[in-house]
Design a protein around this nucleic acid. Structure first.
Lengths: 138, 138
DNA sequence: TTCCCTGCAAAGCTTTTGCAGTGGG
DNA sequence: CCCACTGCAAAAGCTTTGCAGGGAA
């Protein structure tokens, strides 16, 4: 814990950063840092993997991207579309993602926490399944 | 994907395995493989970390333990109270865990998935907060 | 000019695996 | 007697970090 190693006061918009931002802008689904790196290299961008990691980390802290942890050990990122709280419905075959906003779960989480004497409760809800087009391909 | 490297037909109850089982039996909260390993060593058991990992993996496949992936990169395990589908309410300070069974979320997940054309949907729901006793300690 | 950002390479972490020897059934 | 299990150490992934040079503002 601890170690919020000091954060810069401003984020500089460098060539690498804007390339990554642009890529995220046109990428609808969650991608891992390594995938994003490959995509950038693939389109001729000169950028190192470390930079991608650092940029994504910074953007996540700014709330500019959503971070998701799948069943494997890698984090996946996607540009955040909405300010408010939401969850994701992810296709486990192609990665296609739908953002879902719902109050049912929110209320259930709050009630459950209260019943058990917990406070400051946050909840993580992720749905995964097979999307319509992946079902067709079968 | 793939590689369901062949599984043994029977699980042998070795000294290491029963020590781990016993430990899990008396451990109410989720613990990482490394924590469990240390606890075993601490009580004088001779067992390697690799064995702990392999045993937990096997037990997870058998459905004997629940696996949870926290915000960090490590998996945490706990003996599964055999039975129906459930979720967890975990204290982010002490790790104390409460099992929660609820149908509200289940129904919401199913409905949401259907609305978006998804099938074979599974859901992961984890609540984390501060439990009553950790709140008191403050 | 300042000091944030970048690349590279090395290091860190958790988890997995190859191998040869051991022991449960 | 098999062959699953174990320990050890090396390897595998993903991610982070130290350092020195570069480039936004």
């Amino acid at each position: 814990m601890s170690a919020w190693g000091r954060r810069p006061e401003v984020l500089r918009m460098t060539r690498q950063r804007s390339a990554l931002t642009a890529l995220l802008e046109q990428t609808p689904d969650f991608r891992s840092a390594q995938q994003l790196h490959e995509m950038l290299r693939g389109q001729g961008e000169a950028i190192s993997l470390a930079t991608v990691y650092r940029a994504l980390q910074a953007m996540a802290e700014e709330g500019e991207v959503d971070v998701l942890r799948g069943s494997d050990s890698e984090l996946r990122y996607r540009r955040c579309r909405r300010g408010e709280h939401h969850h994701h419905l992810v296709c486990r075959s192609c990665g296609h993602t739908v953002e879902v906003t719902e109050t049912v779960v929110e209320r259930w989480a709050a009630r459950t926490a209260r019943e058990h004497g917990f406070a400051a409760v946050s909840h993580a809800v992720e749905l995964s399944g097979l999307c319509a087009s992946c079902l067709d391909k079968t």
